[in-house]
Amino acid sequence: MTRTCLAATLYRSTLALMLSAGTAWASEDIADKYPQSELYDKPVQVLPGVYSAIGATAPPTYENSGHNNNLSFVVTGDGVVVINGGASVRLAAALHDEIKAVTDQPVKLVINENGQGHAMLGNAYWADLGVDILAHVDAIHEVEENGDFILQGMERYNRDKAEGTRVVTANLSFEDKHVVEMGDMVLEVLHLGPAHGPGDTQVWIPALSLVIAGDIAFHERMPPIFADTCTSCWIETFDGPFMELGATYVIPGHGHPTNMDLVVAGTSDYLRDLRDKIAAHIDAGGDLAGAYYVDQTRWRHMDTFEELATKNAGRVFEEMEWE
């Protein structure tokens, strides 16, 4: 067995043990796990060449600097691919400092997993360095339409930490699939279908059986459902092409690296359960006011439950009322 294969086997075994033991759970109650950095937590190596700075599972705050999603990067041997631009230029710079502590290879590509602020507001930092930025066409459209509004929201909670951040859209786009061949790595940048929001993007690394899933997959915090989210479409995309990847390892958009079983429970199972509860409520003649109170206690263990459970129920009612 080669040294590379042995290293990969050891990392996979270690990760599998960590996941099965349930030792990687996050908490939304910890304001900042890495106070010497703008990052919420220091990047960890998930598999050989793949690192992720795991964000808070709480809403974005001044204390966590808006780092409430996962900022990942792949060291390919001929450059670094970053997944998510970060919620501000300061956060992007902090991530870059950590990358430079790991490797002297330059960052050659940044991928935005969607058009939300914590995925793209740091784009300005990378663009100023001349780094290409890739996003799905729908995510680019989202930034073009709502970027200024998203920036203003970040400025409200991040105050002085927002200094220097401006809206920069990706200069590269794709629709269904974009293959990145760099160094020793092949990354398939995918849009598998409608899910959590416009332009949801997954990065599939077949050689490692790893998917950097973005916001199609949740397990430690409750999935947020937006006004334009189609939950039936999300389930169809998740249970279909996403599951068909056959990934062994998953870096979700939020929360620690995990496996498919846990993101199925935290995503598809949750969405199905909520839709079943709302369907029963509608069949019984229930209205929107009552929909907010359907029983979701099964999911109370998930972070952001208090912030999202009732909102999600109301949005699913509004969706299903016309199905």
Score class of each variant (00 low, 15 high):
His191Tyr: 08
Thr310Glu: 14
Ala280Ile: 01
Thr229Cys: 09
Val211Gln: 05
Ala289Cys: 08
Cys233Trp: 09
Trp204Gln: 12
Phe218Glu: 00
His301Phe: 08
Glu307Thr: 00
Val294Gln: 06
Met260Thr: 09
Val294Ile: 14
Ile216Arg: 07
Pro224Ser: 14
Gly240Ile: 06
Tyr249His: 13
Ala217Ile: 09
Asp283His: 13
Ile212Asp: 06
His191Pro: 03
Gly285Met: 00
Asp273Arg: 12
Asp273Ser: 14
Asp239His: 11
Gly240Met: 07
Leu210Asp: 02
Glu307Phe: 07
Gly240Val: 07
Ile251Phe: 12
Gly197Arg: 10
Cys233Val: 11
Glu220Thr: 04
Pro224Glu: 07
Glu236Met: 08
Leu262Asn: 13
Pro252Arg: 00
Thr237Arg: 09
Leu274Met: 15
Asn312Ile: 08
Tyr270Trp: 13
Ile212Gly: 07
Leu271Asn: 05
Asp228Lys: 13
Phe238Tyr: 15
Asp239Ile: 11
Cys233His: 14
Phe305Val: 03
Asp283Arg: 15
His196Ile: 10
Gly214Phe: 01
Phe317Pro: 01
Met222His: 06
Pro194Tyr: 01
Gln202Arg: 03
Thr229Asn: 09
Ile212Tyr: 07
Trp299Gly: 03
Ser268Lys: 05
Pro257Val: 01
Arg300Trp: 00
Gly240Cys: 07
Arg300Ala: 15
Ser232Trp: 11
Gly199Tyr: 02
Leu187Glu: 00
Pro224His: 12
Thr201Gly: 08
Met302Gln: 15
Met243Cys: 11
Ala284Asp: 10
Phe226Cys: 03
Val264His: 11
Gly314Trp: 12
Gly255Trp: 00
Pro206Glu: 06
Arg298Leu: 13
Glu220Ser: 10
Pro198Thr: 08
Tyr292Thr: 10
Pro241Val: 04
